[in-house]
Structure formats: C-alpha cells, structure tokens
C-alpha cells in the first residue's frame, strides 16, 4: 500500500492512492494521457478497507449491460455510498469533499466505472461534471451532442468530422463540462465509451445540441426551461436522486444554460444534418 499517482482530469487535480487497484488504474487505456505532477486537489483512496454502514438507498441501477446491480444511498451521518454488485463500495463525505474512499476490488473489470463514479460525485463539489455526450471541436470551439443512448450522438459528431473542415473528436462518451468565469468549457477525459479517444485538451463550448432521430433535419434553439430539460438527463443520473446533490447540479446546469445556447436537432444520420447544425451553431 501507499503508492500514489497524480493526474489532472477536467482541469481538476486528482491523486489516486492504493495498492493493486492503483496498478490496475495506471494500466487502464487512456489514463496515462492525464498523468501530471500535481499535489493538491481530490484524492481517490483505492484499496481502503471499511465497512458499509446501514444506508437509505436512493437509487438502484444496472451497469455492465445489466450484469451488475449498483446502488446509491446515504447513511445516518449523511455520507454518500455506492455499491457495485458484490465487487466493492465507495464512500464520499460532503463535509470532506476532497476525498473519496473505495474498497478493494476483486478484479479490474469494474474499476473504470468506479473511477468515473468517484469523479462524478467529487467533481460536482468542484464544479466539474462528466456529461454523457459526444464532443467535437471545430476550429477551437466545442459542441456537445446530447441524447439518450442509441440516438446517434457518435454518428452525428463523426459526420461533422467527415464533412466539415477543421473538426476533431474530443471525447465520445463522458467529457467534463465546467463553468469558468463567463465561459463554459469542456475537457477530454479517460472515459470515452467504445471509442478510444483520450485527449488532455480544453475547449470553450459554443453550444449544446440535443439530438432526436427524425425523418427530416430541423434545428431550434431551446428556451431556458427546455434547455434545462435537455441537459439534466445527461448529467450523472444517480446524483439526481438526492436533494443536496440536486441543488448543486441545478446550480451547475443553470450556470451552463445562462452562458451558452442549447439547441434541439431533429435529424437524419446524414451530412446535411451536420451542415445544418454547424451553420446554426458556429456562424
């Protein structure tokens, strides 16, 4: 025990400490890109042995294509806990928001998800939120495509890259969104879904784009309340089941949608959809 490694992810300095789990973490594809010599920030303590107390479970959900049941809850001391099937558990005390503790895991299979979970709750306290999106950068400015799984987020960003000059993919699953001063910015992350796209890169966000499959391409700017409804489901879902976390998330989303426009694009998976969106958002 006692090894550490430091990273910067989403502009947030992060230390991982632990034994076996740390070695596994360092071997995860993409993690190396985010290694940086930083001492401050949030520490995720891996391989910590602690008992799971009695909890009020707020949310149950499946990961690994329904193979593992996870729970999110809060104990009598108002400390948050996640469980990952029988594989392990995680605790976060909002009074000590710079620490997340994770129990020893039996194997590396769930570790990427555990690290994402740890980041999602500690990041919320630091204003860094991993958003379920495919993010494309076009001439230095980013667009995040949001939508339910299977809506064609990745397909749409790949159409930008193919048909619009000067575009590249920043992240295909879980880029980190932040409000910095008057700007909304997005960072690459080590969580990129099925696409291995790990970039230590930051870009100001031009707009958010909520996608819906439609027989015709049409785009519309959303009013504040619609913009909220467009972004909220793409933020880490478990946190929406707790009041304190929701307060923070609502502040965060309010900060985002008051600074940048949010659009809804009804679209086909074709080049015209990408051109329409690009013309509207980047003009």
């Amino acid at each position: 025990m006692g090894s550490t490694a430091t990273f910067t992810i989403g502009g947030l300095p992060l230390t991982l400490s632990g034994g076996k789990s740390l070695a596994w973490a360092l071997a995860l594809p993409g993690m190396e890109v985010f290694r940086e010599e930083r001492a401050d920030g949030v520490t995720i303590h891996l391989d910590e042995t602690f008992t799971l107390p009695e909890c009020r479970w707020l949310h149950r959900f499946d990961i690994v294509d329904g193979m593992m049941e996870c729970r999110f809850g809060v104990d009598a001391e108002e400390v948050y806990h996640y469980t990952f099937g029988d594989a392990g558990h995680l605790r976060f005390d909002p009074r000590k928001p710079d620490e997340v503790r994770v129990s020893p895991l039996p194997d590396p299979s769930v570790l990427r998800y555990v690290l994402w979970t740890a980041y999602s709750i500690a990041g919320l306290w630091r204003g860094a939120v991993p958003v379920h999106a495919s993010a494309v950068v076009c001439r230095g400015r980013a667009v995040l495509c949001l939508g339910e799984s299977g809506t064609g987020k990745s397909t749409h960003t790949s159409l930008w890259i193919k048909h619009i000059e000067g575009c590249h993919l920043l992240n295909d699953d879980s880029p980190v969104l932040r409000v910095e001063g008057d700007e909304v910015v997005v960072y690459g992350s080590p969580w990129s879904g099925k696409t291995p796209c790990f970039r230590q890169e930051r870009a100001p966000v031009a707009a958010l784009l909520r996608l819906e499959q439609r027989p015709e391409n049409a785009i519309r700017r959303l009013r504040a309340i619609e913009a909220f409804t467009a972004l909220q489901p793409s933020c880490p879902p478990a946190l929406a089941h707790d009041e304190l976390c929701t307060d923070r998330m609502v502040d965060f989303i309010g900060g985002v949608i008051s600074r940048i426009p949010v659009y809804r694009l009804g679209c086909r998976p074709d080049a015209d959809a990408a051109r329409l969106a690009h013309q509207t958002l980047m003009a």
Partner: peptide, 18 residues
C-alpha cells in the same frame, strides 16, 4: 428550484433518467 429565471420542479422518474 430557481434556474435561469425560471421556477422549476424536477419530477425524478425511477428507472431511466431520460
């Protein structure tokens, strides 16, 4: 809750977040 000048109530559904 108050967000961007609107008063909203979030009706959290069980199951799918969307």
């Amino acid at each position: 809750r108050h967000v961007s000048g609107e008063n909203i109530v979030i009706m959290q559904a069980d199951g799918a977040a969307d």
